[in-house]
């Protein structure tokens, strides 16, 4: 094995890993977006005179979580409870409730669980800081790999000659 093989091999594996990760991530993203488009239930029955109220209603039902079908918003879910909560949201918005009032109403009954934007508390810090920590750790690992890789590559002529001498010496000894 030559020294160039030693240093270039990890680099190409990392590149391969990153490109395959990128491809699979894009695939997942495309799938998630297309399935979300299919899941919308009919909202025709909810009529508004005020377009601002209508957009508030749509915003809310896409941020409130269905307690029964736990990984869907109340806009996505066909569950009877999701419909009840949509109806309640509709009535409250029609009556002129603000976004915060509707969210508070749901959280008071179903807990923080009911809202897809959890509040920042000590118990929820991991939700807010976890992704950041993962990115930082990832960046640190990549930096470390790149730096240690380039150090290995920057052997001077004299060092290369020394390395070759050591290798031949070792071979001589083992023979």
């Amino acid at each position: 094995m030559t020294t160039s093989a030693l240093t270039s091999q990890p680099h190409s594996t990392w590149r391969q890993l990153f490109s395959s990760l990128f491809v699979s991530f894009s695939l997942v993203l495309v799938l998630a977006l297309s399935s979300q488009a299919q899941a919308q239930v009919s909202l025709e029955q909810y009529k508004f005179d005020d377009p601002a109220q209508e957009s508030l209603f749509r915003e809310l039902i896409n941020e409130l979580r269905c307690p029964k079908c736990q990984n869907q918003t109340i806009a996505d879910s066909d569950a009877p409870l999701a419909k009840d909560l949509r109806d309640r949201t509709y009535l409250m918005v029609k009556d002129g409730a603000t976004k915060q009032q509707v969210v508070d109403y749901m959280v008071a009954r179903y807990g923080d669980f009911a809202y897809y934007r959890p509040p920042v508390r000590t118990s929820t810090l991991v939700l807010w800081l976890g992704p950041l920590a993962v990115v930082l750790i990832g960046a640190a690992v990549v930096l470390w790999r790149v730096r240690s890789g380039s150090e290995e590559a920057q052997l001077s002529e004299a060092e290369l000659a020394q390395l070759a001498r050591l290798q031949t010496e070792k071979q001589d000894k083992s023979e």
């Binding site: 307690p67 029964k68 409870l81 009840d84 909560l85 309640r88 009954r109 179903y110 807990g111």
Partner: peptide
């Protein structure tokens, strides 16, 4: 039931 937070 909604006021009680019942979901099933």
């Amino acid at each position: 039931a909604i006021d009680f937070g019942v979901y099933g």
